[in-house]
Design a binder for these strands. Structure first.
Lengths: 374, 374
DNA sequence: TTGAAAGCGCTAACAT
DNA sequence: ATGTTAGCGCTTTCAA
């Protein structure tokens, strides 16, 4: 999209040639002077020494455990402040077995659809005292797997995954080992696991039916790659609506593929400008596609109707307003996170499949009549 | 909101009474049978036992270190697969001292402005083999500190922070201990640290000058809270542009505060509808504010000019298109991440302050002449 | 109330 | 080429 401004000046390359940091030059051949990790951070042992107490006492103070005299506590706290001590949670985690962190793997951190979802998950995690580690798969199954396994190696307590791939059997050992995993937006492939998703089929069917109700008979569908579950579900909804209205579907009216603007634009133009049976309305399979199609339609004379899956900011302020099938990303995230933490709290039982309803929001673009209406 | 699927059923406590995993059962009065953490995941020791090799050999295979016969390697790998072993990075980290993870603290994960930034940081982190832990401060200084310190306790190698607070002295011990920290969007408060930000002052000055060039003399400024550095910098730019044009600024034309739509709407309406000297143009301090003001202006008859700080998706498709002072969030993130990793790679030197230029993008709303022009 | 000792699972350093 | 021994910094256990 926008031009990527080059970093103005090369970032501060002003390092002086490191004046021989430490003096421990000519000494005994000690293998390694028990050198501290973590940039020589003080440990509980250091705090204990400074406060003149035992290690465990420091631990008690740090963790606010009972059984420490106010006076001792004060001395320990002073030592902590003086040394700038901060507990090393890595070590704690190793001992305790829980990391108090969960992983969130989504498709693209930059996609505005995931912002509210990400935020909702974070809020719930925070309420449970857990940190959120996240990353995006860039819609690449290999990358998804790599990321998910890296998170498992970090021993996240649980994982929320928006799957890019369609085979998640690689997760079986992890799940058997007790990692809780909830899939969002799309079900897991070839394993049975918790899922929270929107009703893609029903939403798309309703959206297309809306267009049909407004007089359209030749309706295009532009969606995501067929590998993506939501894409095929929405396409199924499209076919269902058309079939229910007794309308035929020409092959040229359906275009699945990447959400890359160029591809979407080409697909849209092809079905709009076809000699034979140009479409009078378009249903778009997700917000990325919708935005590009809005651009294409804005350039043309002939008014073409549009309904898009996913709501997006400012959809109401465009002219015409964009009619959408809205799904609630925040609720999706919140529900998934709640489910995940209930699993972590010990909830057993069969995997649950939560399906959230969508909502058709009419704003104008979906109510445009066909331009060839007689 | 939607139905939060109730935890299906209560806890799955179905582990059989541990069929005495290892044989060292009837021995000394060992306090606790060394029970495994992490949901009984296999460890390198288990793999070693199963493959009939030493622990270190497993470690070598797992880390692809040299010095293992192809045959041994095969046996170890078989054991790994059979057991579903996955290295515990918590332990690794404890030993190695580096976590290969960085933290990103921003204001709001749901704000579209941060999506591309987040994504850019993630890409760089990934290129360096690091994971990204992130969270949002909700623009609350206490929450920022809490989050940052939690990340430090996890011993992230470095931190990228979009500061909410204005006093970051609490980071001094961390930085002294070697945690690399780069601030983005706004400088750190009361400490000297690396910063990567846009030229808020210059951008705002240019934006306001643009309005002045189009004939406006009464221009409003609606910005973020005065605590936020960018807000005051942009206000400074506004004042500079007005002063340079010899224009007075009425007190009622300036409104700093929360970016909450209600507040922004009230502020906008007040300055637009003033009896005395209503403004004919508005400069908005960030994308959240801009979006709300666009809504307000869309409801009115009188055409009011608008220039906003920050670009946003679809700004070009609104009618009129919204003229903005664009900053490149992705480059901001990329530059900060590059700087962070250069620090982690040992780059020393004084803190660097990188300032990225902004770009005025004229799209229509900023070129509307004053409605009272004679 | 306090603390010493034994690991958590891994890697570094040193045998063999 | 492979194995053994110490820890990393913390919590757990148990004794004082």
């Amino acid at each position: 999209m926008a031009d990527t401004a080059p970093p103005p000046s090369a970032a501060g390359r002003s390092q002086s040639p490191s004046p021989s940091p430490s003096q421990d030059a000519g000494r005994l051949p000690r293998p390694v002077p028990a050198q501290r990790r973590y940039g020589n951070r003080p440990t509980m042992k250091d705090v204990a020494a400074r406060a003149g107490v035992g290690l465990k006492t420091v631990s008690r103070v740090v963790n606010a455990e009972p059984g420490v005299t106010p006076d001792t506590e004060r001395r320990v706290k002073e030592a902590i402040d003086a040394l700038g001590f901060r507990r090393n949670d890595s070590a704690r985690v190793l001992r305790k077995g829980r990391t108090a962190s969960i992983g969130l793997v989504l498709e693209d951190l930059a996609d505005p659809f995931y912002g509210p979802l990400n935020r909702a998950v974070e809020e719930i995690a925070r309420a449970h005292g857990a940190l959120l580690i996240n990353g995006s798969s860039a819609e690449d199954p290999d990358r998804e797997q790599e990321l998910v396994l890296a998170l498992c190696a970090r021993r996240v307590d649980g994982l929320i995954v928006i799957p890019a791939g369609d085979d998640h059997r690689y997760l079986e050992p992890e799940m058997a080992a007790g990692v809780a995993i909830v899939f969002v937006d799309r079900p897991a492939g070839r394993i049975d696991a918790d899922v929270v998703r929107s009703d893609s089929f029903g939403g798309a069917r309703a959206g297309v039916a809306h267009l049909i109700a407004h007089g359209h008979r030749r309706i295009g569908f532009i969606g995501d790659q067929p590998r993506v579950h939501t894409a095929t579900e929405r396409l199924r909804g499209y076919h269902a609506a058309m079939a229910e209205a007794g309308l035929p579907v020409a092959e040229e009216w359906v275009a699945l593929g990447s959400t890359e603007p160029k591809r979407v634009r080409a697909a849209a133009e092809a079905m709009l400008d076809a000699e034979h049976e140009p479409v009078t309305a378009v249903f778009t399979g997700n917000n990325r596609v919708t935005v590009t199609v809005v651009r294409v339609l804005a350039e043309r004379e002939r008014p073409v109707a549009l309904v898009g899956f996913d709501d997006f900011e400012l959809a109401d302020l465009l002219v015409p307003g964009v009619t959408v099938v809205a799904q609630d990303a925040a609720t999706l995230g919140r529900t998934a996170a709640d489910l995940l933490f209930s699993r972590l709290d010990g909830a057993g039982g069969a995997p649950s499949h939560v399906v959230l309803e969508t909502r058709l929001v009419a704003r104008g673009s979906g109510e445009i009549p066909p331009w060839d209406a007689r």
